[in-house]
């Protein structure tokens, strides 16, 4: 089932769902599992919509005798039992997925400090000889989990690379951590998602995911 969903996902992503900021055209594991969750929920929602609309339409058919069903069917069954079951399953699924996604201790995690400003991002990476600071471009190794420690210097911003993972706010006075990863080397677009004033629309950045050699070179300070 999941496999089948993944396949359709890719198919749909190729046709129409792609784009530099598309959450459905995934390139990271968090984004991929969330997209799976989305397609599953979409299917469920479609079924429920059809069910409700059919029941609604049938109410208008001509009928000689009053239709069946009292409070037991309509309220006990359809109104309470049915949604409760569906929601319970969905909640369990989503909770487990969320648990997988959050930043836990793991081997080989790269930690990058990101600070958000009106209207640029500074990234401080671990280098061979101390920190490497870049503006508006984040460098990460492909295939490895990366934790971003987010802080903001003026107003609230939000770190979001839709093709890799969900978003996390950068809030003045607090430090938040988000884990991302890129399956393959490549370039991915990032966008500030929390309204941050006049420059919000253009508060963008780019993620460069390097292969192993590229990452070592970057850490050595050789700008690509």
């Amino acid at each position: 089932m999941l496999k089948w969903l993944r396949l359709t996902t890719t198919a749909l992503a190729v046709g129409g769902c792609s784009g530099p900021l598309s959450t459905l055209d995934t390139a990271g594991s968090a984004a991929a599992s969330i997209a799976t969750l989305w397609w599953a929920m979409l299917a469920g929602a479609a079924i429920l919509t059809v069910l409700v609309m059919t029941l609604l339409a049938l109410a208008f058919r001509r009928r000689p005798t009053p239709a069946p069903g009292g409070t037991r069917l309509w309220i006990g069954g359809l109104g309470v039992a049915m949604p409760s079951t569906v929601l319970l399953v969905l909640l369990g699924f989503a909770l487990a997925l969320g648990e997988q996604t959050i930043a836990r201790k793991a081997a080989g995690v790269v930690v990058v400090e990101a600070s958000a400003h009106q209207w640029y991002w500074d990234f401080r990476h671990p280098g061979m000889a101390g920190e490497i600071v870049t503006r508006d471009v984040l460098h990460i190794p492909a295939g490895r989990p990366v934790d971003l420690r987010l802080e903001a210097h003026d107003v609230i911003h939000s770190f979001w690379v839709p093709r890799l993972a969900g978003k996390m706010d950068a809030i003045p006075g607090h430090v938040n951590v988000i884990r991302i990863d890129a399956k393959e080397p490549g370039r991915f677009e990032g966008q500030c998602a929390e309204f941050c004033g006049l420059g919000h629309a253009g508060h963008r950045f780019r993620v460069v995911a390097h292969d192993a050699a590229g990452w070592t070179a970057f850490q050595r300070g050789e700008q690509p």
């Binding site: 409700v52 609604l56 989503a94 978003k167």
Partner: peptide, 30 residues
């Protein structure tokens, strides 16, 4: 009222989707 049913049911369903934390991480503020 029929218009209400169609639209509100869809809104309710997307509401349940947004209540799922991981999905909201993507959809929030979009």
């Amino acid at each position: 009222l029929l218009g209400f049913f169609v639209i509100f049911v869809l809104g309710g369903l997307t509401g349940v989707m947004l209540a799922m934390v991981p999905f909201d991480w993507q959809a929030h503020d979009t």
